[in-house]
Design a protein around this nucleic acid. Structure first.
Lengths: 252, 252
DNA sequence: CGTATAGTTGATTAGTATCAACGCTAGTGG
DNA sequence: CCACTAGCGTTGATACTAATCAACTATACG
């Protein structure tokens, strides 16, 4: 909570500020994004057409990209960094819907606007796509629409698993599931699955798992005492006993 | 959660058994379905093509249509009745992902199979579409794919709202939200929003809201004592104080 | 009419939240 | 370079919501 929002800096302003820094990484990112995100499967020509509606930006940490209810005008792809999506209740209670990393897409919404707020966790480079232009491009490139569809289905499946977690798992099981998923993602992009990075705060983890900061902290401490995990430094977690963690996550 | 599954009756067997009953309602349903479900927006010709991959069935209550992990081979549309979708933990803890009614679609999944079990609540008439055939039809009719996409997005938005409910709302707020949503749906299909039907059991409601049967029962009783709702008969609920219920649901 | 199932209500417990204090780390300014 | 401060994280004591255990009632069913 109490996430201090930056003043609403102009997105394109940032793009210009950092355009020099972005030049070279953005080329590399193009390939990376093609592998992971919705540009995958597209031909070189199709990626080029997609590039015409694209716009880069480098944002600082804790920067609000858009708020729940804002008019849906863009879809975003993360080139680099980490983003959290969350919903708020009037009294400030917060539920984090998801943590997103390199290659992930966000920005779907309805006519009522975006259905969550998107905020960077670390300094983040985003790739922005105009919603209207993307729409017409989807009509022209059926494979792109396919891709968007299958990504929505993937998100839906993840959301349903999170519902099981929030509704029926204990604090220990929640934390174990969280770590297992982070490790699986790390493995998928070639990182070591036994040491996961935790760029988000305890408060963010708590609001993602439907717990309080204190319970998250205590649960980490317990898991550490049981030699299931290690906490070498802030922002990092060692998974010592994968088997135990996996079983705990499944609720066994 | 001790839901006694019927022996796995053959779907087509049921179709044949009830084919006489279905003949006439299925014609009426065709129009209804066009209005509500994914056939909407399609031309007469397109609906006809869709009909070629379609197959009706009338199922009894508490009938398992498919189980989590089963091979994804069909997509279903509810002509009539009510269905619940749920996920289980190994020890039997259950989370209901959603309640579906006339016009709703279900049966999306990944390569790992369906990601939830689907079970009828009341006797239900389903419309079944072969997944492979539907896929090729989607390629031929872009509007159909559009429709599927926007329905997946709608489901995703609903799932994210449910995450907020499960993670951050109190028992009272959960029940209030549940009733408000049922009423809004009732209103949308022309029913009175002040008297909602509750075809599902208290156990189902509990597993949907991440509570126990007892807590759901107590919360209903409290709301009744506060004259916010009325419980005239089992399976029905009167919403006496819409304003109070709405505010409670929002967490105000 | 008897039995099984669903729902309600009460007593007690348990898991997590809340309240509070303290330690650690990083950034700030003298 | 070092004290100072602010924010984050951890730990402890206590409170409270909802779960569990148990009994009872109402309803549906054969």
């Amino acid at each position: 909570m109490g996430s201090l929002h930056m003043p609403p800096l102009d997105f394109d302003g940032h793009k210009l500020e950092h355009v020099a820094d972005l030049k070279s990484p953005s080329c590399r990112n193009c390939d990376i994004v093609r592998e992971i995100a919705f540009c995958a499967d597209l031909s070189h020509d199709e990626v080029k057409r997609l590039a015409t509606v694209r716009c880069h930006a480098a944002l600082p940490a804790s920067y609000t990209v858009f708020r729940e209810g804002d008019l849906v005008d863009n879809v975003y792809s993360i080139s680099n960094g980490a983003v959290k999506l969350y919903k708020l209740l009037p009294d400030g209670r917060r539920q984090i819907i998801g943590f997103l990393f390199s290659g992930d897409i966000f920005g779907l919404g309805t006519d009522d606007g975006y259905c969550y707020t998107a905020e960077t966790i670390t300094p983040t480079q985003l790739c922005r796509f105009g919603h209207r232009k993307l729409d017409s491009l989807m009509e022209a490139i059926p494979r792109l629409e396919r891709r968007m569809f299958s990504m929505a289905v993937r998100d839906l499946v993840a959301a349903q698993e999170q519902m099981l977690l929030l509704g029926r798992k204990t604090a220990r099981e929640k934390v174990a599931t969280f770590l297992v998923k982070l490790a699986q993602r790390a493995a998928k992009i070639g990182h070591s699955p036994s040491e996961v990075a935790l760029p988000m705060s305890r408060a963010d983890i708590a609001d993602y798992l439907g717990l309080t900061i204190e319970t998250v902290s205590r649960t980490f401490t317990q898991l550490k005492r049981d030699n299931i995990i290690g906490l070498p430094a802030s922002g990092h977690c060692l998974l010592n006993d994968w088997q135990a963690l996996k079983e705990m996550a499944e609720g066994a």
